[in-house]
């Protein structure tokens, strides 16, 4: 039986990584790092998680903060403790990744965006979140530090399953790096089936490199209806290198709906969500093509 209530934990605010690793490396799964803390608070309030200790990262310095372009202009570095609102307000993000502020518009609400952090969101592992599939479609990667050193992981490799990530105990995401690809277009489609403002029934992040109507390369990431955000590689294979047309889109939609088995929940049955996936894959691709190459 789980234990209810918020009581019975302490908060520590380490000011160095070493200190943080020491505090986190206890073997106790109820010791958790905390960024903005919104997702953790929700889990604590709904009695899904009872911490013994929260390790706040807010006093950790440099590696978790900042947002800027690399010297060669090939990628953008986003410190893990940037809030969503900081991304939303960043002119750099707007010019390189307009998809981000478009996604923000329907992501939770301003109060949450003012607090929730990029890193915490990535580490949370909830498959319904809007941003992880987008970062995946943009080929984002995260820098991870831990007691045994530093590593880099594609965002795509962060997720193992429902609320399960590949982060080891004590490991922290310090930053997200997103490559700048001026010749790619991307979109995120949040499909809600009940109220307008809701968790997605399916989330669909797509980025494409187009030459006229031909798809040079692309990423299609599906979220919300699976246990983790997932690349639809079969659909990508169908589309890669070919000219967008009705028959091809049908073929791609077939491939997309065949390669995954969606989950039934309160936002829709497997059958209906599969139907939606078929339609929205098609529409999102059409929109991207017509945006890039208006007829």
């Amino acid at each position: 039986m789980e234990v209810a209530g918020l009581r019975g934990f302490d908060i520590v605010e380490p000011s160095s990584l070493e200190e943080a690793f020491g505090l986190l490396g206890t073997g106790d799964p109820a010791v958790r790092p905390m960024g903005g803390g919104t997702a953790l608070m929700l889990m604590m309030k709904s009695e899904l998680f009872k911490p013994t200790r929260l390790v706040s990262l807010r006093k950790l310095g440099e590696p978790f903060h900042g947002l800027g372009e690399s010297a060669d202009g090939k990628w953008v570095r986003i410190g893990a403790l940037n809030t969503f609102s900081m991304l939303d307000h960043s002119p750099l993000m707007k010019s390189h990744f307009p998809i981000i502020s478009r996604t923000m518009n329907t992501l939770a609400n301003l109060r949450v965006r003012n607090v929730a952090s990029v890193g915490g969101n990535l580490a949370h592992g909830d498959p319904h979140l809007d941003l992880p599939p987008v970062w995946m479609a943009l080929d984002g990667e995260v820098r991870i530090v831990g007691p045994s050193g530093e590593r880099v992981s594609a965002v795509a490799d962060l997720y193992k399953g429902y609320y399960e990530t590949t982060l080891e105990e004590g490991e922290l995401i310090t930053e997200l790096r997103v490559p700048v690809k001026p010749d790619w277009k991307s979109s995120y489609t949040k499909v809600t089936t009940r109220a307008a403002h809701d968790w997605p029934a399916i989330g669909l992040a797509i980025s494409v490199q187009l030459s006229g109507r031909q798809i040079q390369d692309l990423r299609i990431v599906l979220s919300a209806a699976l246990d983790k955000p997932t690349r639809l590689t079969a659909a990508e294979t169908v589309l890669r290198g070919r000219d967008i047309g009705e028959a091809l889109l049908r073929e791609a939609a077939d491939a997309a709906t065949e390669e995954v088995e969606l989950e039934t929940d309160n936002r829709g049955s497997q059958e209906y969500k599969t139907h939606l996936l078929r339609i929205y894959v098609t529409r999102a691709l059409q929109d991207l093509v017509s945006e890039a190459a208006p007829k």
Partner: peptide
């Protein structure tokens, strides 16, 4: 100066 949900914030901070 930023709006937040005070039910999701620990007073500690």
């Amino acid at each position: 100066s930023n709006p937040v949900s005070s039910c999701l914030m620990l007073a500690w901070f």
